[in-house]
Design a protein around this nucleic acid. Sequence first.
DNA 1: GGAAGTGGGCGTCACGAGCT
DNA 2: AGCTCGTGACGCCCACTTCC
Length: 322
Amino acid sequence: METSVSSQLDSSLNDSVTDGEDNQSETSPSPADHDQELLAAESSGVTVVQLSDGQTVQVQGVIQAPQTSVIQSPQVQTVQIATVADLEEDETVADVQKRREILTRRPSYRKILNELSSDSPAVPKIEEENTEDEPQPISSTTSASAPTSIYQTSSGQYIAISQGRAIQLTNPGVETLQGTQTLTMTSSAAPQPGATILQCAAQPGDSPQQFYLQGGQMLIQAATGDIPAYQLRSPNSGLAQSIVMAASPGGMQSPSSQHAEEITRKREVRLMKNREAARECRRKKKEYVKCLENRVAVLENQNKTLIEELKALKDIYCHKAE
DNA sequence: GGAAGTGGGCGTCACGAGCT
DNA sequence: AGCTCGTGACGCCCACTTCC
């Protein structure tokens, strides 16, 4: 049902968009009639909304169906919004089925927004992982103001990575410089394109560990047998990055303590992942709410425009009838 | 100036859904 | 079946505002 109905709606609606706005401008001579006009100048996903007080607001990321103006019942609009997501010109039946399957699953903000954005260019996609080219959103206190990323390892050690690429390792409870190791990074000997090697020796004479930092991701290897493994999460989108060190500093441990440590490590990994997931989820939620608010603003303006339009048409009709 | 209220962000837990 | 992920709920903390 979706395809025929919606495509008809789309074409007719798009036709009526310009007509309606023309009517609006022609049939509403008083400036007050322009007050709530939705200019709907959508360029590069930005909708310009003119408010009643003369303010012009650029609205980004509005969840919006392709039509911008039409006289129609709310039901029709609802139908269209619900069905536009199912439309894609080159969409196959399998795609439609898969999309329906997806839509029946637990809703996620990312999915909802991406579904909408794939059909409405006015809605920006939520990136799988935010990249640094995106301007830092709103008020992320850590990323906005602090150029230094701070990590805490499972052993309580702190790792601070400044934007100047200096790295400091700080042991907990040690406030003197002795507790801090400053590491240097070199890019020349990178084993892979774009990777940076970081060499670290805890004690003079120790064989150094090599840390490979690649792009936004960090991959750590231990050059000695003392540290069996490091696991790193990729830092992304200005969110707090994290490092999980699966190190067993002692090296020689009983199986029971190793087991306990393994459990602890797993728990820390789980907590860390969940922490980041929660952070990401909140970010998505905020973005989703913001999109909904923008859409409300646009629809309210559309509604007012249409009411004005209807009034004008009624006037014309009444005059003709007389 | 300090107590109370409020809002936003965070970490954690629990749970369901999807995946392997 | 076990694992992973996304999200709601809860409690805590902090900053800000309001009231006395």
